[in-house]
Amino acid sequence: MARAAKAESGPLVPLWGLAIAGAVIVVLIVTIARNWFWGIDFFHVVGGALWFSIDMFMGFVIGPILARLDVPARIAVTRRLMPKMLIIMPTVVICTLTAAWQLTQQLGLFNLPYPQHWWLVAAFIVVGFMAIIAYGVLEPANILVLLELRKPEPNGVLIGRTMRRFIYGAAVIGLLQVAVIIIMTRIATW
């Protein structure tokens, strides 16, 4: 007689991952409190590079690969990938944007007159759209897939639909990231 599958219990995300994310946030706060310019620049550049790279990789590499896998393989990959994404992406985003704000202050970019100030406004608009997609599409999809996979009988149709939404959202954000890079390199080379 087959045993009924049980729902998974335990933390949704690896606790060691939460500890690392927490340590990164603490280091960022200390960096800002000590007004350490190099540290703030490091957080912004590394965070931005990670954000861009992960979004592009998820949207244009992992997504097409997942679509071609058979369902059991797709579930196995998703089950391991999504908990890490749930920790990595919010941490990377908050570090990048917070460091960006501080860097803008330290470099005096907020005091730029128009028309140069428009580049800052443009950066804010693009990042605003990215935030709406991330908060409205990506993160809810991430959590939904994680919780559904823990059930005794996950709904494969719902997971597949949600993962497609996640991958497309990551790809759109990746493309918006190109606009951000254009703006950032423009500002950096005045």
């Binding site: 935030a131 709406i132 149709v157």
Partner: peptide, 27 residues
């Protein structure tokens, strides 16, 4: 097969609209 709730929800629209207005305020 159950594909989840596919209806357009006012909750999602209002919440995203609220976030958008907050971003515009800061902008």
């Amino acid at each position: 097969p159950y594909v989840g709730d596919t209806t357009r929800s006012p909750v999602v629209a209002f919440a995203i609209g609220s976030i958008a207005c907050a971003l515009v305020s800061v902008g």
